[in-house]
């Protein structure tokens, strides 16, 4: 896993609540079998007109946000479908962090798995950062995962909470899968304790 410690970047504001993963990456792109190439499809229906030109009214089409790496949005960002493609699309569009008052539960897990940092702030703080991203052209944030702080050129704005497990995985570049494999012996002994009558899908193979 790619390590994340601190980074600075341009903020782009998408000030609306409950942005669901169907909007982040619509279904027609989920038939692909790779992890790359979703960036151009990110926010597809909001971002493009039916003829493929950018929708002028869509916030993230503002040229001032070109090169943005921090997305600032409303509460419950990433709700809905479990599609990890949403995170691949945001990464593909250049984002390394999303700042919001809360996140969809599965989206948060998917983000952390892909080094897209979900920075959860209070509603007041998140709204203030969104407002500054709109009002001040070129507004930038410094996100320090080790210190768990968010700052701008005027200084530290606030701290943010993160699960210590994930902080360790991200800062040290550890893969949760490998951490689970370290417990192979524990897994084996759990398997021996399981009730014999628990179902096995393999026994259904011949079912008619």
């Amino acid at each position: 896993m790619e390590g994340v410690r601190r980074f600075e970047g341009l903020c782009a504001a998408l000030p609306r609540r409950d942005v669901d993963t169907d909007q982040i990456i619509p279904k027609q792109f989920l038939k692909r079998t790779g992890r790359e190439g979703y960036g151009d499809a990110c926010f597809f229906d909001w971002r493009y007109l039916p003829d493929g030109r950018p929708r002028p009214e869509f916030e993230l089409n503002d040229p001032a946000y070109r090169g943005a790496s921090i997305l600032v949005s409303g509460a419950n960002f990433g709700c809905g479908s479990s599609r990890e493609h949403a995170v691949w699309a945001l990464r593909g569009m250049g984002f390394r962090a999303v700042v919001a008052a809360s996140f969809g539960d599965i989206f948060r897990a998917n983000s952390l798995q892909n080094g897209l940092l979900p920075v959860q702030l209070s509603e007041v703080q998140a709204d203030a950062i969104a407002a500054r991203s709109v009002e001040r052209r070129g507004y930038r944030l410094l996100i320090d995962l080790e210190a768990q702080t968010v700052s701008d050129r005027d200084g530290e704005i606030c701290g943010f909470a993160i699960d210590p497990f994930w902080k360790e995985c991200l800062t040290l570049g550890r893969d949760p899968l490998e951490l689970a494999l370290d417990h192979a012996a524990d897994i084996s002994s759990h398997e021996l304790r399981r009730a014999a009558w628990l179902p096995r899908c393999s026994e259904l193979a011949g079912l008619t």
Binding site: S82, R83, E84, V87, I106, A109, F165, P176, H183
Partner: peptide, 21 residues
């Protein structure tokens, strides 16, 4: 019973386990 993303699908395939808070 709960939904997971593709990275976690990979983890369950490999280990039959998941990290959960």
């Amino acid at each position: 019973a709960f939904g997971i993303g593709t990275s976690e699908v990979e983890q369950v395939l490999a280990t039959q386990c998941l990290w959960q808070a």
